[in-house]
Amino acid sequence: MSLYQISKLLFQLNRDEALKRAFKSAPQDAIAPFELSEEERRAVLEPDIGLLYVLGVNGQILMHFAAFCGIEWSDYLQRMRDGVKRHGPVRAGIYAMLSGVDEKVAGS
C-alpha cells in the first residue's frame, strides 16, 4: 500500500517478460505479491493511467506501462490530463502537472 510498491510492480512489469505474460493471462494473480491498496489494484488492472499518474508513479515507468497496454502516445498524455481532472492533482512524486487540465502542450 504505497507508491513504492506500485512503482515496483510497474518497474518489474516493464522489464520482465515472464511477468508480462502472467499479467496478460491472469492479471490479478500476477499482481498478488505486491502490497497494493484497492485503489492501486484497480488502477493497474483497469488500467487507469490517469489515476496511476495522480498516485505519483514516475512517468519514466508509467509511459512504458501505457505502451505495454497498447496506449498510443497522444492518448497516454490525454489520459494523464483526464486523470488530474477526475482525481485531482498529483499526490506524490516529482511528476506533477504544471499546465491546466484543458491545455495542450505537444503531441496531444
Binding site: 512517468g59 502537472m97 499546465s99
Partner: peptide, 8 residues
C-alpha cells in the same frame, strides 16, 4: 518528459 507537460 512523460508527463502531460511533455513538450514544455
Amino acid at each position: 518528459p512523460a508527463t502531460p507537460d511533455s513538450g514544455m
